[in-house]
């Protein structure tokens, strides 16, 4: 670097630049969280049952195999749109599907990837279904590209 570019100039770019972008990031966060998200995240449908479903999702570490809105592990299918893929967008159909699926695990087919049985009650499975249905309705800029997730 040219000698005219001094260490204190470099330090000022660091301090000024990072301060500016921290503030910009905070402003954007306020805009995103306070103005934009209420319109997009379907929060008026966030029932007790959905919250219970989220805790079940977390307490059984579902994200350790599956992805949800593309985040998580890539060992098992994406589940943010499983309500549409397996339930055809119908609440009752999806609940029935989830109940059958969760109780059929593990398949124990030799050599195939196995999903544990989490011993969930029927109410638990309904809550989990409600959580996944709610998640499928978040406006996520039309991701994933197709039904397969």
């Amino acid at each position: 670097m040219a000698e005219r570019f001094t260490k204190s100039m470099a330090r000022n770019i660091y301090l000024g630049g990072s301060a500016f972008f921290v503030l910009l990031f905070l402003a954007l966060t306020f805009d995103t969280q306070l103005r934009a998200m209420p319109e997009r995240d379907n929060r008026d449908q966030l029932t007790e049952q959905v919250v219970r479903g989220k805790h079940l999702w977390e307490n059984n570490n579902c994200v350790g195999c599956h992805s949800l809105m593309g985040e998580g592990a890539y060992f098992a299918p994406e589940l943010a749109n499983v309500f549409d893929r397996r339930g055809g967008g119908d609440t009752e159909v999806f609940k029935a599907y989830m109940n059958a699926w969760m109780n059929a695990m593990p398949t124990n087919i030799p050599g195939r990837r196995q999903m544990p049985n989490f011993n969930l009650s029927d109410e638990d499975i309904e809550a989990l279904a409600a959580f996944l249905e709610w998640t499928s309705k978040i406006d996520d800029n039309n991701w994933p590209p197709n039904i397969e997730g």
Binding site: Y14, S18, F21, L24, T32, A36, M69, E71, I138, W143
Partner: peptide, 17 residues
């Protein structure tokens, strides 16, 4: 920091923001 802080946005594409 100049690139990375707002660069967080590349994680916000498909999760609601």
């Amino acid at each position: 920091l100049i690139t990375g802080i707002i660069g967080t946005g590349h994680h916000f594409f498909w999760i609601g923001p």
